[in-house]
Design a protein around this nucleic acid. Sequence first.
DNA 1: AATGAATGAGTTTTCATTCAT
DNA 2: CATGAATGAAAACTCATTCAT
Lengths: 209, 209, 209, 209
Amino acid sequence: MGKHTVQASVKDEKLVAVRRAQMVKGAVSLFKEKGFHRTTTREIARAAGFSIGTLYEYIRTKDDVLYLVCDSIYENVKERLDQALNTEKGSLESLTAAVASYFKVMNEFQEEVLILYQEMQSLPSESIKYILGKEMEMVAMFETILQKCVENGEFLLTKREIDGIAHNIFVQGQMWGFRRWAMQKLYTIEEYTDLQLRYLLNGVRMRDI
Amino acid sequence: MGKHTVQASVKDEKLVAVRRAQMVKGAVSLFKEKGFHRTTTREIARAAGFSIGTLYEYIRTKDDVLYLVCDSIYENVKERLDQALNTEKGSLESLTAAVASYFKVMNEFQEEVLILYQEMQSLPSESIKYILGKEMEMVAMFETILQKCVENGEFLLTKREIDGIAHNIFVQGQMWGFRRWAMQKLYTIEEYTDLQLRYLLNGVRMRDI
Amino acid sequence: MGKHTVQASVKDEKLVAVRRAQMVKGAVSLFKEKGFHRTTTREIARAAGFSIGTLYEYIRTKDDVLYLVCDSIYENVKERLDQALNTEKGSLESLTAAVASYFKVMNEFQEEVLILYQEMQSLPSESIKYILGKEMEMVAMFETILQKCVENGEFLLTKREIDGIAHNIFVQGQMWGFRRWAMQKLYTIEEYTDLQLRYLLNGVRMRDI
Amino acid sequence: MGKHTVQASVKDEKLVAVRRAQMVKGAVSLFKEKGFHRTTTREIARAAGFSIGTLYEYIRTKDDVLYLVCDSIYENVKERLDQALNTEKGSLESLTAAVASYFKVMNEFQEEVLILYQEMQSLPSESIKYILGKEMEMVAMFETILQKCVENGEFLLTKREIDGIAHNIFVQGQMWGFRRWAMQKLYTIEEYTDLQLRYLLNGVRMRDI
DNA sequence: AATGAATGAGTTTTCATTCAT
DNA sequence: CATGAATGAAAACTCATTCAT
């Protein structure tokens, strides 16, 4: 955190949180529609339900909005994921369930994740690192699950293979939203989940026994 | 093509092609650095080696530059891919070779592909469709190879499975460039190719014999 | 006075005086640093030790602050000058002492006088006249002293000459602060006083006797 | 010069000079009326006879206008002064003539000099130094004249006295415009010149003869 | 009396596009 | 064909002022 905090002129921290939530909500819906650069600060203010002057009481520059949006998206995704994965016990079923949950979350947040990928580059590299750090935490969740599975003797995998698979899971989840114009014609999210799981598990399942 | 053609004031088609090539080259290197929206038309003209007035003799709007850039990128990728895959004969080895070639091409064009993903949204939806069509053609290349493999009795796959695998191959190639900050710490391009091929083939290889 | 009074919402006149003194003190130090236009009302409030809302309980507009500051500066200068010159008796020595005192005061208030000259123009012309009136009173002090000297037979001067000399004295005092970047490299305030006095008295001293 | 040059987007140096002259002329008349801070860039552009976009082809920031204005004022004053003083021969008459010329120039440029004193503080300190350097050159002109007079045996003065007198001459010239509301009620410029010259010369004339 | 969040008019600055030369 | 000066709409951002608490 520390420097990854956007300065507000308003002192009341509760209020800052409330206003920023309004702001992010409005901004996300605008960014979905036209992207960050084609959205004006006035539009963001209006969508948030307050004036341009008020907007600037809660941020310093337009880039702050982008940062807040990106941060909020991953925060939401991670929160939903934490809830979904916290019962995980290192079994094949729980891995399956975790991946299915993750894909569902990514289905829900597909537009938001698209924003992240398209606009994050405009942030200062410090902020990019910070946000990608959150992504790594999510990948690490899958690594942990896989690791447990290995420890439980469900799979036989090296650390490197675990890393690779965790990445693949993560990317396949994003891909659903990313390439929805192609994927969502071919499959429902459930079908897609089944397909990818089968494909992933082919790679990881210990030969019978 | 038809409407997917950018109008030029200059008649000499050879010259148009030459100037646009200069323009795209300059623009790509600028877009890599700062993105489409943070790049000005003046900068594009300068990078191309001519004046702002001349730039506008070869395009109508700034968006035309983006279109030309996106189009050119996929044209280049496809061209390289056509070369790499045209000797393909429907065998496991040729599939392996094709995927490896594709990954190599994506490694080479990673920054350009990034541009595509980040900026394509700014194009009119007509242009997006047109360019995504090219992407579909590339996916179709892998479908064809897989189909031939099935026909040759190498694999046993349904049409749907073929589509899914082709997509996965395609996405894993893009993922290399996309998530290079994570992937390229873990693997060399060759290691990455091996890893992904093993997973892919685990899923497609006919159960022994 | 009359219209040269700044309206306050707060009734308690004692409090008004206290708050305005705080305000002027903070504002002067800000104006010294960055000038009137580059200083915001929020900064003035903060420097004064209260909130922006409170600031506006004691003034009507930002210009009021400038007026109050200008007024206060001359008020302070005049007060110090009154103290210094009230023992004056119309002799050459007392003139000398008066000029020396005045130069000392101007040395002390040089930054404040700079503010006056740089920002007074932003006041409504009514206020300018009012404040310049105070300046005239100060010039008049020197006229009075000179007049007494003439009456005492120390000098032989016409009314016009007295006016001119009084002005010269006044301007030379301001010049010390105004052109301090040039003058204060050449002289100490004492040397400067000596120099200017000699020069002034050359013009006014009655030929020997 | 060197870094004291304002960057223009337009290449044609002749044109830059012409447009900047228009700009300065318009800006000076606006600054006389309402000061730098109360004048908008749009007003400057309009007064100069071109659009806001064009204005910014010839400057980088609004502060550049102020710099150009300040520079131009002293350039003009110095040029007029150079013309007036170049026939100077180190006699009492030529000193008298020089001072009279200078006062006349300051009478002519009184509003411009007022601008300098009121707005120069807003410039970066580098530019202030550069411009005050020009002022020092003007003071040096009088020092040179006085020095010649001393060499010719007209006056008997130390170097320090010369410096002090040159400063006094310079300040008395500025004072005429500065305090015109007071001075110009009492005297015509000619009378003022006579008066100040008499004082000055009382101080410098060699005893008797 | 004191506070500080809210407001929006107003300001500087940029930049895609045009057009006369 | 090529040039680059001119344009002005549009954008980000500021800040004096108000007013509900």
